[in-house]
Design a protein around this nucleic acid. Structure first.
Lengths: 350, 350
DNA sequence: GTGAAAGCGCTAACAT
DNA sequence: ATGTTAGCGCTTTCAC
């Protein structure tokens, strides 16, 4: 159990910097016998300080446990080296995107400040906080950020980029996978597999990615005379997919193919159908969208549209940090996806 | 109003075109004809300002597009309302933990600043940056933070909490699931299922959670005369598990049970075995650890030790933010896990 | 190469 | 209730 580390004598505490007072450049200046300005230079532009003083200051700093204060630096320099991200708190897809942002930003020595929200209503609050930190930019990564909110970002001095949010195009610089074409390509693949009837299972019909993807499916299938009704799972979750599959299984006649609007929902649909004795590709073909790592897991092996997350994220960061003038900031970048052909659309002998 | 119309209009124009100069409380003061301090009060302690002035200031602020500067606020108040998290960039488990932290911190109106790293070598860099931002606390969520690094945190003025890091106990306040007992309980379950031989597949043997979990398994099994050799997957990934399973499948005699050190690896093991024609629970029993959402997906339905992530995270936040004096900061909090009984250890008729 | 001094935009006494 | 004033810890001219 918790053995107490002994009575920390106040002397020891102070010695170890556990103290209430933090070490500043003034302390280091005093300790090393130079001016505060010189200490600051040692930590921001060392080349402007002679090697001798530099060393003297460095050792004093080390002795005192001095670390430059980024807050003060930011206040003065007007740059934080921090990028904000407004992201839904849940969902495999967003977690992966976030991880990728964090990784790539770290490489450019930026930090990521998270503003996550559980419910769409909380977006406003998140956006409100975002503005207070003078961030170098903000990533709007959620399909549930409304038009009004995007409009507000547009007229804000804070650079922003919308990630995978078709509705944002024209309002805010945006980077997306080609949702419509991607879904159309999947549909074409199904047509090639001689599918004659299809069903689309979306997450939430009011979300713009949902609409755009569905449109891609419907149009591509229509060209071949295949209808594609819409079914709403109600959420972008495994459970919603599982439940939708249960309902689907009740129906008299099954479609020959089911196109699901996202992988996470697709996994649920797959398991839900399996649970009802319906198996892909034996009884119907099934496709997902996103290209989550799990889609490649042998247990699922899902046909899906893989988003090149690394490319999308790289583009988004470029738009955010490298295009300083409004002029060369592109209105929108669209990155094509790639189909992953899995077992769920494999030809059976039947 | 008495304010000079020329100034006001030029400010407005700037605001509309993504101003280069940002609006400060001084601008709002000028616009609304009060002192800067009053403007500040309106935004930090409105109750100290008369309703009339409050309204006047608010509308001026709105007109100018003023938002308080959190950087300046932090510099003065010595509080950032930001908590840092040093977390591995990859891995299902960590992504879930992070999402939970972000959610719970948002509820307490804290923001999360991410310091993620891809390779263990990068931890030092991340910890270095952490110190610069005067965060209100930092979460050390990674088993690969070394003793030396923890020691440094211990003597730093920045409050910190180690998350699921047995090696940190005694050095830094820590919150963990009961790794050893949890794994022992899973082992006991296997014994109850009359298992006579077992194998443990760990991720990386040098990681402390790995060691503690393995110890739990070995000791519990030894009490019943069951040996449990160790096999290292080499990473905490699906692929590593899949590969390990491939090697295992080559062996002459299979163990009756395989205990895997983490769910993500376990999924790979499960699929890898399946690929070799070995199926759980038919040919051997299999357990995981962590209780990832996917463990409950019908496709896997894994027996595993579920970590109550929400409880662990809540505890960690408490330790970090609510225990201000070193005295009432507990050395370590250990939260028990719960077994989820899945199909992979279900009794077969054989 | 180094020091002195003026802020960055806010908060928090302290006056009034 | 409101204004005045003095910083928070840095960066950055501008002198020397």
């Amino acid at each position: 159990m918790g053995a107490k580390p002994g009575e920390a004598s106040s002397a020891q505490v102070r010695n170890q910097q556990q103290a209430n007072r933090r070490v500043t450049s003034v302390d280091v200046a005093a300790e090393s016998g130079v001016s505060q300005a010189t200490v600051a230079r040692v930590f921001s532009s060392p080349e402007k300080v002679s090697p001798a003083t530099r060393e003297k200051v460095r050792s004093a700093a080390e002795r005192l446990g001095y670390v430059p204060n980024a807050i003060a630096r930011s206040l003065k320099s007007q740059r934080t080296n921090i990028v904000g991200a407004v992201v839904p708190a849940y969902g495999e897809y967003w977690q992966n995107v976030l991880a990728e942002f964090s990784r790539q930003l770290a490489q450019r020595s930026y930090q990521l400040l998270l503003f996550s929200f559980a419910k769409p209503e909380d977006v406003d609050g998140a956006l409100g906080s975002v503005a207070q930190y003078r961030l170098d930019g903000v990533i709007l990564a959620s399909a549930t950020i409304g038009q009004a909110q995007l409009g507000r970002m547009q007229s804000s001095p804070l650079p922003s980029v919308a990630f995978n949010q078709p509705a944002a195009e024209g309002l805010v610089p945006s980077v997306s996978v080609d949702n419509e074409v991607g879904m159309a390509e999947l549909a074409q693949h199904l047509v090639d597999m001689t599918v004659g009837t299809a069903l689309y299972i979306g997450g939430v019909s009011s979300v713009s990615t949902d609409q755009v993807r569905y449109r891609g499916a419907v149009q591509a299938l229509a060209e071949h005379g295949v209808a594609c009704p819409y079914m709403e799972a109600g959420a972008y979750t495994y459970d919603a997919g599982y439940k939708a599959a249960g309902e689907l299984a009740q129906r008299d006649n099954l479609p020959e193919a089911v196109m699901v609007g996202s992988d996470e929902v697709a996994f649920g649909v797959l398991d839900g159908l399996e649970n009802a004795g319906i198996s892909a590709p034996r009884d119907l073909l099934l496709t997902g969208f996103d290209g989550l790592p799990q889609a490649s897991w042998a247990g699922y092996d899902l046909t899906t549209l893989v988003q090149a997350t690394d490319v999308l994220v790289a583009q988004a960061i470029d738009v955010l940090l490298d295009s300083n003038t409004a002029a060369d900031r592109p209105a929108s970048v669209v990155v094509p996806g790639t189909i992953r052909y899995g077992m769920t659309t494999k030809k059976t002998d039947g």
